Each structure stands twice: as C-alpha cells, then as structure tokens.
Amino acid sequence: MEIYQLRTFVTVAQQGHLTQAAELLHLSQPAVTAQIKALEEEFGVALFERYPGGVQLTEAGKLILPDAQQILAQARSLLYRAKALQNEPKGKVRIGTIGVPGRLKLGPWLAQLRESYPLLTVQTTHGISVGVLNEVRKKMLDAGFYLGRNPYQNVNTVPLSEIGFCVALPPTMAHLQDADWKTLGSALWLGLSQFTSLADISQELWRSQNIAPKLVGEFDEEATLLELIKSGVGIAILAERTAHRYAADGSIVLWRNGEVATRALLQFIYSSDREKDPMIDMLIKALRTTWQEESACLIQ
C-alpha cells in the first residue's frame, strides 16, 4: 500500500467517476484503475461498485475511506513539517558547565533551546570555571559558564546574576561564628586549585580583609569543600544557597549567621571572534529568555 494509491482511492471516492479522478490526479484512466485494483487485491475486498454513470463505494470502501483520509492528512502534515525544518538552524554546540546545574538554570535553558531550535544538538562538558574559560578562549568549546572576573579581552561575557558567598565553618569550629577577620585568618582554611574561580574569589576576599590563612590541601569542587567542612578539616566559602541549605541541618555552621562575605558574577562566555555568529546569538537569546522567565516566576 502506497500513499499515492490511497490518494487515488480517496479522489475516486470523492468524484464518483474514474475519468474525473484521473483528470484531477493528472493520470490516465487505466493508471487510476490499476491503482484501485492493486489496493483491492492487497486489502482483499472490493472498494467500488461500477455502474454506467461512474462508481460508488462498497460497504467495505465506506469503512476504509475515513482511515485513508486520516493517513493522507497525516502525510500532508509530515510534509509541511519537513519543509518547515528546511530553514531551521541546525548543528552541534559544545557548552562548558560548572558547579550545580540548577544554579545555571541549565534544564530550563536547554528545554528552551530544544523548543526554539529543534535541530540544534547541545553537548555539555562539566568542568571548573578557569578550565571552561580557557577552552572557550582556545575555541575548544563554543561557549560556557564562568564565575568571577574574566581577564581576557578575546572572551565576551553575558552577565547572568551575582552569586553571594558565605564563610562556612565546621561544627567543631562553631566558636568562630562571631569572630573577627583577624581571628578567622588564624584558623585553618581549605586550599583551592588555581583552576577554579573560587581560588581567585577567596584570595580577593583575604586581601580585602588583610589576612593570609594557613591552607590545608588543594581542592577544586564545591561538593568536596562541603564534605571537608562537615568533617572538620577547615573553613571555606560556599555559595549562599548551598551554605544555608546545609547549615539548616546543622552539618555546617555559618559565620555571622550566613552574612554574605563576598560576591562574584556568574556569566555566559564565548569567543569574541564569534560575536556575530548566528549560533551564539541563538544561545544567548534562549538564555536571556530563560533567565527572564525564571526571575518573573520568583517575583510572582
């Protein structure tokens, strides 16, 4: 059974005449007759009764006609959809992500991209801020997320939000929760890998408070820092929402009841060479739509 055979069947049923149907279909009458005969053989039932003035549907033909019309409608819909996709943006983009996906609104953003550009394929690579920044700068990634100050002129940024950071203490250091900076500076802090933006953020904080803490180890993930704080290894800064979530169950203690000690800008980054790239423009438009919608939901 072919689509063109069903189209012929429906046309003959509507016209009630083989010759008129052939004219509409731009076929010869023998070709129309052959297609109807092929369908009847495949279905195993007669579809039309012939009489001197034309043809009319048999009872079996009447039952089959609605299904045939539905199939043709679906085929037309499929064709229109395929033609519409001819002009849809297509391709694969590589995005560097950092930290917690929820903080980036990654799910809503990718859903927005999928809805707006169905032929666009996104590949995410999770890393740490400085690593993502360098890979975007070297064009190993098309774009990504970065937390902190961007030192490169050849990397463009789209500001998304400002993230507050709190000083998180182990429960064993709860006596320091109201301490001044000089006292905090004499306590043990968790060291941070140079490849994470938290290292720069922490160092800027220490410089601003004129302290130089003794560091324990070198770590590169917020989840690792959290576990080490819980275990009493040392102090570190954590993103405000994360800090308050874990302080609520008593697994960590927050300095000055969770006062924000410093802030850093969360940004979307891409190579400045691609400023006019339609693909980057699509990513940014969907990103802005997502962040605006999420903010509106929070306000409501």
Rank of each mutant, 00 (worst) to 15 (best):
I269V: 07
I201A: 05
S116D: 15
P101T: 00
L39C: 06
E40H: 09
K83R: 14
N156M: 14
L57K: 03
A46K: 15
L106P: 12
S197L: 11
D277C: 07
A179H: 04
Y51S: 01
D249H: 02
Q35M: 10
V100E: 13
R241V: 15
L24M: 12
V32A: 07
A247C: 06
R149C: 05
K138R: 15
A199M: 01
E42D: 07
I299C: 04
G232H: 01
D281R: 11
E59M: 00
Q29P: 04
Q300L: 15
K276D: 15
E23I: 03
S28D: 08
A82L: 14
G99V: 01
L188H: 13
V93S: 09
Q300E: 13
S295C: 08
A143R: 05
Q209L: 10
F9K: 06
E240H: 07
T262N: 05
R94K: 13
A73V: 15
G217I: 04
P151H: 09
L57P: 09
Q29E: 13
V93E: 03
Q292E: 11
G217H: 00
V32Y: 08
T289W: 14
L141I: 01
A187V: 07
V122G: 03
S186L: 15
Y146S: 05
T196F: 12
H17L: 02
I163W: 01
V158C: 03
T33H: 13
R50C: 09
T19Y: 15
A223M: 11
S193A: 11
L184T: 03
A236K: 10
A75D: 04
K230L: 04
V12L: 07
A22M: 05
I299D: 06
Q267T: 07
L6W: 07
K138D: 11
K139S: 11
V136A: 02
F165N: 01
K138Y: 10
L176F: 13
S295E: 14
R149F: 09
A46M: 14
L18E: 00
V55M: 11
I3N: 12
V100T: 09
Q209N: 08
S197K: 02
G102N: 11
Y4P: 11
E40I: 05
I98N: 04
Y51H: 15
F43A: 12
P151L: 06
H26K: 14
N154K: 09
S77F: 08
I64M: 14
T183Y: 05
L24Q: 13
L228R: 08
I252W: 00
G217K: 00
V136R: 03
D277Y: 02
P151D: 08
T183G: 04
T121I: 15
Q209W: 01
Q292C: 05
T242S: 04
